[in-house]
Design a protein around this nucleic acid. Structure first.
Lengths: 342, 342
DNA sequence: TTGAAAGCGCTAACAT
DNA sequence: ATGTTAGCGCTTTCAA
């Protein structure tokens, strides 16, 4: 690593004092400096290949131009677009993204990871791990640490959040199934400890009721976790208890994959005997036979908006007018798995 | 953000000078300090909740304890495990991971992203974007910037790299197909500008030849890019030209998905009429009908090893004994898509 | 074993 | 419009 050029060297090359060079190089203070001088400094900087030392700058300004992001499970394809969106937005303002993944089932591990990020003096945090009752969220708020929740939120969160509109998404699904003639619809829900699991469950109850579909507790099964195996177990239990059901609304695509298996294990056909729908519309599941009908959530936009919101908080001294949360509207990708009622 | 405790405050609370506190807190200099003093300082630090300011430290030591990683396409499920593995390994040594994704098709964009990471004074780089002829790789080496290539490498790379053993992987596939009785085998290759595309292609030629399978150029089709659509186009062209082929080795899972479609478009059945194999064994494709036979690459380990290698380079003053590259051994996940010859 | 003092590279009063 | 100066919080010589 070659020796770096310092501001002082640039100043000397331009025949000015360090502080003048600093002002000339800094966008916001540039107009205080004589135009010719600015030109001279800029030229010298370019010629010498000067790049400011962010540590020295950060030490003075007390900002690292870095944002930390806590991901529950980076191998989940959901988070790729969120990260990509956030990174793109942050880059526009000269910020970089520090990634850390934490085992979301281990609350202590999440806390530790967040602490590491804070110790690094990240200017703000994007948190994708929040559970519904999350002491960590309350803690961040209390410590006045600029943070935004993304994808999942906490109950009556003191922090702003960017999430998908689960009520609308489930509405799309239920409406579609009703249009297809289904009247006995079941639900494999996600864990109710997550806002997504709980929210979609509530939405399912609400929509079926308002559309006049009878749903009693026997038509609903909660999965422990968003995994294929959990979906298989839940759907199995559900179909055993309620063999009359003709459609299953799953809280997520992986659960839907489990439901596919459960249906097949009973010798039935997905799509014609039992309709199945997923949530998230993750890549490649449109290649299944039958291709999965699923709710598409704008994850990339979620990342962009979360980053944008955080940028706004950082430049306006944080909690100016309370948490400005957003719910992003989903769309429905209708495919073969949600055929008409047999 | 509450005011941070400084080293000076800890020192005062412990009744010692700043520099003594510094030595006591620092693992490597701790043994120079009186044991009782160490205890006193540690206690004070804990009581006050002291966390060192990494910017101040970095300014002195000229290290940021940060590693940058350049990803070509963070939405590709391949990179999740690589990132997770790298992050876990880096965390052990107190390093954090700065993520940046770059459009790999735009060489200038990759260069710009790398430059940003370097300007941030990251201590080292993990590069997942390398093309076979990559001026960026040569440039990094020339500038003596500690860097490791992962997943893909450059031709006669001056930088160490951690990649999968493509020769062995394709060997597994070809051997398996031959065992199934196939003798007319085609190949849908990846772009030859990538080490993976080129390497698997070479391996295919080499293995078919050594196993006595006749392969002429008409049995091979190069895809422009690792995408389902490209795989469809390539497999279509291949099957049109060589309808006698009974098995297609695809250079990647997405290309294999395209091949599924091409086979079906000709009214044939995947697995029985035409065997198809993929590469990477990305999640969920075992749920297809038929489930995809694919080469499993230890991506998480790839991330771990790359990070470990970089750590070794950083602590030993970089290029001590030349690039120590690794090829990680793959395994074959045999499933329904590679049935016996009809 | 500990203290004193310098300085990493930068920004931001304050002075001119 | 520019220069002077102080200092962000830490590590690391050099002295004692």
């Amino acid at each position: 690593m070659t020796d770096r050029i310092t501001l002082k060297e640039v100043a000397e090359a331009a025949g000015v004092h360090m502080s003048t060079a600093s002002r000339a190089l800094n966008e916001e203070t540039r107009d205080v400096v004589n135009a010719e001088t600015v030109a001279r400094v800029l030229k010298a900087a370019r010629k010498l290949g000067y790049t400011p030392n962010p540590l020295a700058r950060g030490l003075r300004t007390n900002r690292t131009m870095t944002v930390g992001m806590i991901i529950p499970d980076i191998e989940n394809p959901l988070f790729g677009p969120i990260i990509a969106g956030a990174e793109a937005r942050l880059g526009k303002d000269g910020y970089s993204l520090l990634i850390a993944d934490a085992d979301v089932k281990d609350s202590a591990s999440v806390a530790r990871v967040i602490e590491t990020l804070i110790e690094r003096r990240t200017d703000g945090l994007i948190v994708a791990t929040s559970a519904r009752k999350d002491p960590i969220v309350a803690d961040l708020a209390k410590r006045d640490i600029p943070a935004v929740l993304v994808n999942r939120t906490a109950d009556s969160s003191p922090l702003p959040s960017i999430v998908g509109d689960d009520h609308a998404g489930i509405g799309l699904v239920v409406q579609h199934l009703v249009d297809q003639g289904h009247t006995r619809i079941g639900h494999v829900s996600g864990p109710h400890t997550m806002s997504t699991g709980h929210g979609r469950y509530q939405a399912f109850l609400s929509w079926t009721q308002s559309l006049g579909i009878e749903v009693d507790p026997s038509a609903i099964e909660e999965s422990e976790w968003y995994r294929v195996e959990a979906g298989l177990a839940s759907a199995e239990a559900l179909l055993k208890r309620r063999p009359d059901i003709t459609a299953i609304v799953c809280a997520n695509d992986l659960l839907a994959m489990g439901a596919y298996r459960a249906v097949r294990q009973r010798g039935l056909t997905v799509g014609s005997d039992v309709a199945i729908t997923g949530y998230n519309d993750i890549p490649l599941l449109d290649l299944l036979e039958p291709p999965l009908t699923s709710v598409r959530v704008p994850y990339r936009q979620m990342g962009t908006e979360a980053a944008g919101l955080l940028m706004a908080m950082l430049s306006s001294g944080s909690g100016q007018d309370g948490p400005i949360s957003m719910r992003l509207a989903p769309t429905l990708s209708v495919r073969g798995s949600s055929g008409p009622r047999a």
